[in-house]
Amino acid sequence: MTPALEIKDITLAYGRRTLLANVSVKFTPGRLTAILGRNGAGKSTLMRAISGLGKPAAGEISVGGRNVCTLDSGETARLVSFVGTEKVRIPNLRCEDLVALGRAPYTNWIGQTTAEDREIIHHSLRLTGMEDYADRTMDSMSDGECQRIMIARALAQDTPIMLLDEPTAFLDLPGKYATVSLLHSLAAESGKTVLFSTHDLDIALEESDDILLFDPPGVIFRTSAEMASCGDIGRVFGIDKFKKQ
């Protein structure tokens, strides 16, 4: 059984501003959840807290019963992997070597990969459809291709929880659909809990299983089908198209 992610009664603050107050959500393994909300609502802050980059002002984030807030970065890295918004283009770095960095929580002091590590790295490249890019370097690749390599790196980290902060932001429309449907199949096939934040409401509603909608200072957590019909998205974003008919 894959460890489940649960946020219990957490309060998130950015500086002195409270973003979320006493929020609890339990995520189901094997499902893709889109995190929606206005700019500055706290989507990234929540992801940073879950991935150990920041701490919630109060409450607990638990993965399989272990509180992420009390673990060191090495332990958290075996539970949660993260793909951020930062563009990574390192000259001379082969894609395969970049994906191999995802094995860091398991490799020795100098980062030597074992046969098992290499098998996982190639599997990750295969799952993201990037096996032909193993020898390429990222300075000659498109944004969408780089995004897939970063996702492959997170996959190689072999964690029950995977977080992606706005993975569709720089992509064209086919690229957005391809990325989100890739995440959906990864969640379904590997049993991982996959969370991604996005501003692409249509794609989120069509392609993901669940939606976590930021409605400060609370959240609304529903399946995509329920969310599409309840009108809350229209209310939070003030868009008529998504309001209840």
Binding site: S73, G74, R78, F82, V88, L93, L101, A104, I110, Q157
Partner: peptide, 21 residues
């Protein structure tokens, strides 16, 4: 050497890959 390889991706990524930055 290993920390430097992780730091190539920036400190945020290095932390989420288990580095005590």
């Amino acid at each position: 050497i290993k920390p430097l390889n992780l730091l190539m991706l920036g400190e945020n990524y290095a932390v989420t890959m288990g580095l005590d930055v």
